[in-house]
Amino acid sequence: MSWATRILKVGRIVQASPAAPARTVPSPTGTRASLQIRHVDAGSCNGCELELSGAFSSVYDAEQFGARLVASPRHADALVVTGVVTHNMRGPLIDTLAATPEPKLVIAMGDCACDGGMFRNGYGVAGAVGDFVPVDVELRGCPPTPDQIVETLRKVTGR
């Protein structure tokens, strides 16, 4: 029962969230505060992944704004793509997008995803995300902080 007392003692961990940012990106379905995300690691150094999981942790709690990570692109409204697109991941990335039902959008997360970042000229790199799939939202940063991530997501969910 020590868990219970600790829960009571600690209370709410989540940090206070600022007011909702302006909704810059149209929600894919026109539904507010509901965004299912399929995360695609197209060739990341895993820095972005670390931050992404941070964004869904108890402190940042992206879920409170209606965003949720899902297991299948079929369930997703948005793909969050991290890292440069390597040769091996080019096909899967395109397939994943194709598997996602309309309406959908692609969020390129991190510098690598947006323009190739520091790996731009690597021998295994095919290009940035935008070279292969249409990118709707770009989230810069190397890696972007959880705050930035949450903020970007809030722009999409509109909450």
């Binding site: 209370g11 709410r12 989540v14 539904t31 505060a33 509901s34 209606g66 079929r74």
Partner: peptide, 27 residues
């Protein structure tokens, strides 16, 4: 969510998700 110290999506979140799902493409 509350027990984990989060704020959570709210009780109505599943309803929002449902509403959205019914507006999505059927594959």
């Amino acid at each position: 969510a509350r027990l984990e110290g989060r704020r959570g999506g709210g009780v109505g979140q599943p309803w929002r998700d449902l509403r959205k799902l019914f507006r999505k493409q059927q594959i």
